[in-house]
Nucleic acid binder design. Structure first.
Lengths: 143, 143
DNA sequence: CTTGGATTTAGACTAATTCTATAATTGCCG
DNA sequence: CGGCAATTATAGAATTAGTCTAAATCCAAG
């Protein structure tokens, strides 16, 4: 019973994809469901591993294509904290990141936390290395 | 005449290197002189090209080694704005960057400018794409 | 001068990402 | 429903920034 509610999350995601103008192909659907299942910061390879093991077979090229497409459509945000890899964040709202250079992981931060870090009030076990602010702009194109 | 003043810039740089504990080898000296000749944001390859054409022959590996060493010693700052390349900034003071995604170039910004950008008051020809704040930490090591 | 540790080098190697050419899907229209 | 044109997915080759390696060179100190 209640078949209208079965897979409503999947259906919600499908409609989300369609709403930004991309076909909800099975591969994109699988990647999106994985990305949006919770807030996380993943590399393309992690997305590939995750999707491969738990769902439909997807090629690496498609993962890259899809992540680039999603980033372009504003569904995910690219984060550059390290030259060796790009992270993708499914939380596109305005927020900051705490990147642990040694551990190689990223966690979200809000303003209050940033202030705390800037004031040298570090949580135990880590020391501030730097705070980077990058303002990214594009050329204005009149179309 | 005035031979004591000849190359005083070079000598100044040499002493700067020594003061942070690195031998001022000819290659490092050449790279440092190039980097510190003015404020700029260069990729490793640009440094290689510049140094190669105007001074002593330097290998690519040495350019990478030297830039990593300088970054580690705090002489230059690594900037990640794009997955495809790392920029090196000879201005290590606290400041922000304006990165034009289309042009691929970086310019320095001060606080006032950041505020201006955040308030959507764009200079002509560009539109705000995003402002990234990354707080970088390291594991605390008791040595 | 000799010697040992530090540095430089060329080129092999790695890993992330993109490209390419082909195959498979898809929506759509009659 | 059936077929077509366009879109998307795929494997694997290609690219590219950066690292590694092993050998050669340099240089300061005795």
């Amino acid at each position: 019973m209640s078949s209208v509610l079965v897979n409503n999350k999947a259906e919600e995601i499908r409609q989300y994809l369609v709403s930004v103008g991309v076909y909800a192909t099975p591969q994109r659907q699988a990647i999106a469901e994985m990305l949006f299942s919770r807030h996380q910061h993943l590399t393309a390879d992690q997305v590939y591993e995750e999707v491969s093991k738990s769902a439909k077979r997807v090629s690496r090229a498609t993962v890259y294509n899809t992540l680039n497409l999603f980033a372009q459509k504003g569904l995910v945000r690219e984060i550059f904290v390290d030259a060796s890899r790009t992270f993708y964040d499914s939380n596109t709202s305005s927020h900051y990141h705490l990147y642990n250079i040694d551990a190689g992981n990223l966690i979200d931060m809000d303003d209050k936390d940033v202030a705390r870090y800037i004031s040298r009030n570090m949580p135990e076990g880590v020391v501030l290395e730097g705070i980077d602010v990058v303002v990214r702009v594009r050329n204005l194109v009149i179309s």
